[in-house]
Design a protein around this nucleic acid. Structure first.
Lengths: 336, 336
DNA sequence: CTGAAAGCGCTAACAC
DNA sequence: GTGTTAGCGCTTTCAG
């Protein structure tokens, strides 16, 4: 129905000025005489002119776009972070482009493409672990990159103190009288995903070790966080004579599964079994789960701010942002 | 560290051909002589050349980008849909750009900008209700648009049979012996968001009406789905002598809140209170919630496929995709 | 089959 | 202050 989008030339003609002047009122209005400015502005209004984003980007070699590449878990944690990222980017008039990686080839391909094709001004890599080759490529490209969850030498990052998180939980459980620790963790088989589970487990185990308590193999399960496998894993830990008296799960969703298994087995929480999760997702409140809060949304905000800062300050040394962890106590660990 | 990204001219020079020919091997390889093609390909390899996406888009006036604008609920439902959208777009080498609307001005601004600035080839509008003026603008712009959840005259859409969903639940509850219905719904105050709650409520109420049962005002609460308000609303319905014997919630998260309140009040589910949710999010399984499954991911897939189809077939009449609903029965309604 | 040349719409020197 | 003129990097007629 519409004939054609107006260009800056149409505006120029209508306002009887040069295209350059139109461009100026768009970008440096103060450098244009008031009368002409008024004429141009009204011409813009009449024509309903909007600068074509791609042409601007192309001429200016700048894109106002940030790419977020992430293993596309349907997880709340991903969502919360994305929300944080979106809120700051939107405020700064940057576009947010999502690249969902579902395989190692995807990841490889995205990185290569993004480096070469000049699609984005910066990249946020969520929960991704890259091969050395790719890291080098990224580094050489000069593209601003911020890692979240992974900490890569020479790059900006937002990291979670996973080890401390593990020991924080262990300390808390120990203080509450629990003495037979168990662990359930989501150890993704995806080679490109970050591995925070191992770190949390490490911190957890070593705290108990410092108290002379060892985490028994048969009280640990790690694997894919899919219903069947994880439930089986949890059941195997709980449905035995020498079961642990507390269980730390690397995510809230897993912790909730534990809660459910406990009910099925007639094990009372927190008396017979203390349960602690990780993430503090909204659902944790519903089920009264004690969990570690890692300010997911804030980590998104930080990542976005960092990448924007990096774009402005290409020379500065890498900045490492650390997210503070807090234990949010609820009924799943309360001592009777 | 890197000098400069190679251009098509560099490749042309190295391969001793014209830039046009390089462009051809990139786009219509069959039209180039094998020997030259080989030379060019190897030059591309040597130079690690990647076409600049923005330059291509600009020259070709086509962007390979789809915008998704949505009220950025941190909701699982949004996420699931996004996942569906992302998977098909990725497969077709389209970029996915997120526009998070947090206010009516945001929405207005995004629409105007997207229409004029030629940033995207198409738009998916999630759970958004637009003013007539904006609808007209969109229509005149000729930009391909697909609505999800809202059904707008003259546009493609993916819709959920909310009314049928409501009556489906009512029918089920009735068949299971429940006779005093109640309803808890998330009625967002955001004027730009779609209102599916009302439709679900409508279908629900009218089914009961057809059985001679009226839904009492004091057994209905609608409001923002935030912890405090909704819990208060639910409590008010349940903590009274004449409370309903079943409650239908417009979303699973609300339904879970109901479950929690019931526990607090010592009301047993499903004996004293049947509870049915909507969405069938992963958590529903954890808490044994009977709920309506609306294939969220599939609706995303459908939306993405539709917009891609529309881009190819600008002339075809609007297509309306309807998502089938199924009731997923779990323990929150089982009759003892 | 291939090269020359003209854009795509805007920005940014460089003169006036 | 403002117009002129070259690009930005790739695609796409149009000749040959």
């Amino acid at each position: 129905m519409q004939s054609k989008q107006p260009t800056i030339y149409d505006v120029a003609k209508l306002a009887q000025v040069s295209p350059a002047t139109v461009s100026r009122v768009l970008n440096q209005p103060s450098m244009v005489a008031p009368d002409k400015k008024a004429r141009i502005l009204s011409a813009i209004e009449i024509l309903q002119f909007v600068p074509k984003a791609d042409a601007v980007a192309f001429a200016r070699q700048q894109f106002k776009k940030i790419g977020v590449v992430a293993p596309f878990f349907t997880e709340t944690s991903f969502m919360e972070r994305l929300k944080g990222i979106a809120s700051v980017l939107t405020g700064q008039h940057y576009e947010l482009v999502i690249y969902a990686v579902q395989s190692i080839e995807d990841l490889q391909g995205y990185i290569d493409m993004l480096i070469g094709s000049k699609r984005v001004d910066g990249l946020i890599l969520l929960c991704l672990s890259l091969s050395d080759a790719m890291v080098t490529k990224l580094k050489n490209s000069g593209l601003p990159v911020c890692f979240v969850e992974t900490d890569v030498q020479g790059f900006d990052s937002v990291v979670i103190k996973n080890i401390e998180g593990g020991s924080l939980v262990a300390e808390f459980l120990f203080a509450n009288g629990y003495r037979i620790p168990g662990f359930v963790g989501e150890a993704s088989r995806r080679p490109y995903a970050a591995h925070s589970t191992e770190e949390r487990l490490g911190g957890y185990a070593s705290y108990f070790a410092s108290k002379g308590i060892s985490l028994k193999m048969e009280h640990v399960w790690t694997g894919d966080n899919v219903a069947k496998a994880s439930n089986a894993g949890i059941m195997k830990i709980l449905d035995r004579p020498n079961r642990p008296d507390c269980l730390f799960a690397s995510s809230d969703t897993l912790a909730i599964r534990i809660l459910k298994c406990a009910v099925q087995l007639g094990i009372t929480v927190p008396d017979e079994l203390g349960v602690v999760g990780f993430d503090d997702i909204e659902m944790a409140e519903f089920v009264n789960l004690t969990t570690v809060n890692q300010s997911l949304e804030e980590s998104g905000v930080l990542a976005a701010e960092t990448i924007l800062w990096r774009i402005k300050e290409p020379g500065k040394p890498p900045k490492k942002n650390t997210i503070e962890l807090t234990l949010h106590q609820r009924n799943s660990t309360e001592i009777l």
